[in-house]
Design a protein around this nucleic acid. Structure first.
Lengths: 157, 157
DNA sequence: TGCTAGCATTCACAACGTGAACGATGTCAA
DNA sequence: TTGACATCGTTCACGTTGTGAATGCTAGCA
């Protein structure tokens, strides 16, 4: 009853490793972009915008897989930072059209640099072959999953 | 000013992919273990216990990287499920010693099966070479990072 | 015996996100 | 045109998750 033999292999699963590593990295990323008064979800929104060019809040909510009400507060904040502009759609005055500003593009580039630095820190110690293999596999998985524009959060459970 | 050229490569970074995929997987895992009235952190605690054999709540808090007060509620819940036993350390009556019960081991095994299923779903579509490469690379990263016993959370930003 | 430290616990609180309700606008049929 | 209904953005109340400070025991040491 006391000494359990079955050493659960849970930490050996990709599910576990991916979840844990993802959380660790996401936390670090979140900490570093905090300098720009941004949180991961903001970066997600900016990224969605740079790809779409411009979009309504509803469309963004769908892309980010969050409630429309959350997009409101994200957009509020980004507008305050002058990272996006928010104008009524002349064709449908219910819709707010969000657009990346130059400042937004600048911010996004800075976040990208942070991400690349983290990439290097993370992959650096890995042997070259493993590094490229990981890149390819992750890319494939991301593509396969549709890769919602979302940056992942910080907790790790 | 309007058409931005620089297509940010953020989604191309490992940081982004790992964070996003990790969040997606963690969410799925969380949903599936909910059947057993467990959350990822509970699994983290059980996993820590099966490796340590037995531990005080403080030790577990350190391993899980969470506040001791959180361990209290996790342990409360697991105790209610009879997944762990909680007894005062006779040698130091301030400490509560947590131990995995048979039921706890059973639960953990079920969670492990869930994780393996998710692994298969995830890696299945990948070509064989990439699959093993990913496994190796993740294992290396996990080892390098110390792999805290923690299952990752659900948000994805 | 008294002081100080450590452990578990409780409690108030902050952060994050959701879903329901609401007002403004658009659409379509009568 | 008018009226019914849907859609968009916004606000608000709420649930969840986790933290940090305060508290009560218990240990250990002078």
């Amino acid at each position: 009853m006391n000494d359990v033999k079955l050493s659960t292999g849970l930490p050996e699963t990709v599910t576990f490793q991916l979840g844990t590593l993802g959380a660790l990295i996401a936390e670090r990323f979140a900490n570093e972009i905090a300098v720009y008064a941004l949180k991961p979800k903001h970066v997600g929104l900016l990224t969605a915008l740079i790809h779409a060019g411009a979009a309504s809040q509803q469309e963004l909510a769908a892309k980010l897989m969050v409630a429309p009400s959350l997009v409101v507060s994200l957009a509020d904040h980004l507008e305050q930072l002058e990272a996006i502009s928010r104008v009524r759609d002349p064709g449908d005055r219910r819709r707010q059209i969000l657009k990346l500003t130059d400042e937004g593009a600048r911010l996004l580039t800075r976040c990208e640099n942070i991400a690349r630095t983290i990439d290097d820190d993370l992959l650096g110690p890995l042997p070259g072959r493993q590094r490229t293999a990981l890149r390819h596999a992750l890319k494939a998985l991301a593509a396969q999953k549709g890769l919602p524009i979302t940056s992942s959060r910080k907790d790790a459970t």
